[in-house]
Amino acid sequence: MLAVLEYHLVNYRRTWRGSALSSLVLPLLTMLGFGVGVGSYVAGGVDGVSYLDWIVPGLIASTAMQTAIGESTWPVLSAFEWLKTYFAQAAAPLRVADILGGHLAFMLFRVLISAVAFLAIALAFGTLHSWWSPVALIVAMLVGLSVAAPTAAYAATISSDSYLAILLRFAVLPMSLFSGVFFPVESLPVVLRWIAYALPLWHGVDLSRDATLGLDPGWLGLVHAAYLIAWCAAGCWLAHRRYRRRLVI
């Protein structure tokens, strides 16, 4: 599994500068756009904190989700369909779990980098209000795995990338919009609210917000964490099944 992670890291070495830069630019633009722009319209803030402070932890979780989706869609499809690199790995003495686990570990590494970058920028803008803020990184990793694993399972099932567009439009986009990143889920109609509760992101957003604002999550925090872990476990189980079906036939 480590050898597979190492392989992905060697591959990443070629493009890391560009991707590291973009993981800094995105939060910077966010600070300016939402903090200065949108923030000035939301004069009263949300739940007693300024809009920027309120939105930053949600965006960290949301960025983790986006990075995880990016790494578990086209790269996985390509490794099966276009470059067929998974099949080369399967011919070596690796198990399906090594091939999948090594790739997921790399995806989490990418999630961690983008979350760290976001947190650092947030710190520079003075939007972090608690020593608990680094916990947002752990939350980001949980969110990352909870979407990367099932998405990798999905990408292992399809044969063309038009199915990825469907995933982005009907799962990722609604999840980004309705998971309490930009406004509290309580302002959604009940039906949409339940969609937010069902998908993993809202749970991460809520935990992340508690971490950077220093709020006590109480028993709900445990529920969030347990729910995210359940998504991770189910996703890994499903991905392993799908990978196995493709690699061992």
Binding site: A3, E6, Y7, V10, N11, R14, F87, A88, Q89, A92
Partner: peptide, 20 residues
């Protein structure tokens, strides 16, 4: 099913790592 993004040598060295 070579890795077209990697160099010729890296294709061999990363693959060797799969064999420990």
């Amino acid at each position: 099913n070579l890795d077209i993004e990697l160099t010729v040598r890296e294709n061999l060295t990363t693959y060797a790592r799969f064999f420990g």
